[in-house]
Design a binder for these strands. Sequence first.
DNA 1: CTGAAAGCGCTAACAC
DNA 2: GTGTTAGCGCTTTCAG
Lengths: 335, 335
Amino acid sequence: MSTPRLTDVAVRAGVSMKTVSNVVNGTGSASEATRARVRAAIEELGYRPNVTARRLATGQTGTISVAVSSVTVAYFAELSNRLDQAARKQNLRVVIEQTHGARTNELAILQERERGLVDGVIFHPVSLTPEDLAGQRPGFPLVLLGEGPAPATVDHVMIDNVAAATEITRHLIERGCRRIAFLGAERSGLTHTTGQRFDGYRTALRTAGLRPDPRLRLTVDHYSADNGFRVVTAALEAGIGFDAIVCRDDALAAGALHALHTRGLAVPADVAVAGWDNLIISRHLWPPLTSVEPDKTAIAETALRLLHDRIGGYEGPGRHEIVAAQLLERDSTDR
Amino acid sequence: MSTPRLTDVAVRAGVSMKTVSNVVNGTGSASEATRARVRAAIEELGYRPNVTARRLATGQTGTISVAVSSVTVAYFAELSNRLDQAARKQNLRVVIEQTHGARTNELAILQERERGLVDGVIFHPVSLTPEDLAGQRPGFPLVLLGEGPAPATVDHVMIDNVAAATEITRHLIERGCRRIAFLGAERSGLTHTTGQRFDGYRTALRTAGLRPDPRLRLTVDHYSADNGFRVVTAALEAGIGFDAIVCRDDALAAGALHALHTRGLAVPADVAVAGWDNLIISRHLWPPLTSVEPDKTAIAETALRLLHDRIGGYEGPGRHEIVAAQLLERDSTDR
DNA sequence: CTGAAAGCGCTAACAC
DNA sequence: GTGTTAGCGCTTTCAG
């Protein structure tokens, strides 16, 4: 027995396809008697609507996709989750896709190699270059997340990285730190996001009359706790002295804490540590981690609103929205 | 200008739809000359195939979905990621869906309210009861993950929880721990998974001639670091003494560590702590966390293999595969 | 190697 | 309130 279709239900219930369709979707109207008959037929046959066919007919999918590098990066997991929750309220279904940070995968999203899968996409690129994005004018509803370069044509949600980085660095300076390292510069040139955070860090140093020391710019390959651990361990072994670390994100910070503990250094007494993203785990690290918290709920809701407009047909120029970020002070910088 | 379709390309290239289809999909054959013409037409028109239509025509989607409670639960994020990577190798696309652990959402997956979205699903239920699953015979390719109750008709991948729990508890006993708490029993009755881990824990205690103390069974609402922190803090304040904690998972363990540090207790000297899942972060907690590591890659590959069979038409009885789990000893129990 | 035509399962006009 | 019919954009026999 092949799977039952709408027609089968219609025949069984002795009504037309249209009526069945109405009952299934709650559209149009039907007498309570026929409704019952139709529902009975559906039940008996085990009928399930075929979404693909519906999508083809309506051109709408009721689904959006969230594309991030990897859900194993806690920040993306948490952000995807907020997007999912916000979308659910609007009866939108969310599927999460991983790009693994690969430029080819990211380009594939931009070029929409395939059409019709989803109504729109919310995309946080990490490897795309300004050139990749320049002049892009996607033929489908798209909202970009993060501080990467966004063309004027595309909607974009970000936070004010420079301001937050300045604030977190000043916070450390106020607590008496003088040799403040920056952990998370990419070996292969700064990404946009990191660049902004680094700028804010330098600005705060300069404002306080401190001179940025290039040796305190700690370079990583990935934003992972593993890498943070290795890099900070290496820096300590190399005898580079510092009394604070501004970490590009909390995963790196977790590794940094581990490295400091392993070397027997006290946090924050010997070295204060601050991170970024305020991950769920961050308040349970030891000591609890001071972190910049981007308002993830606001990011999700803003992105969804922009996407909703696009899906609704808005074709105006790209809108760039800046969402709040807040410094959460915890023990790792309390000195 | 509406979006170009296959016909438009065909007209432009002066060939038939079939030929364009061949070129796009690499099927059939076409002379190099026509190929070039078709490709040029595609380029000029900006044509992108419509997956929905293709899906409807072929009945295949080339996509599977991975349904987990939430990607903010690090274990699920890491598992989903492995599944994604394993599937990619087979040219399968993976979308991740969240159920938020809600029974209605989980039931919806089982009942496949909608058809045609994906070729199959790999599903880790958390709220489904044995009754929900009993007698289920899904009309679509499905593989269940985790230690929940699986009907004999459905494929299932799990680890040997009892054995691993016994091992981890024995490990603590060998290190001199005598009052070993179990953190993670659910307030509303043990889930299957927790039940197995608790069984293993008790078995090890009994084997060693220790008597399980009900006061050492620490009850939680969620498997989160927050909850672990609160529950362990409360237990310490209540004066419940223990020299080790077996945690149902690493998230709870992270909270437990935080609680112990906050109360000024030394780990592992005063209290040893062990967890489950070996999350990416676990080795960077302080002290690095001893953890049971389910072989996530093996879980992913096994699940995918089973699903592949089902998609290929296998209709035999459910297969239940047990994947290895390994105890990773780290400093949190090194005493 | 290429073309014409019949679906895939559903929705949405438009009649009745 | 209910039925008929023409697509949605693609793949795929089956001829040519």
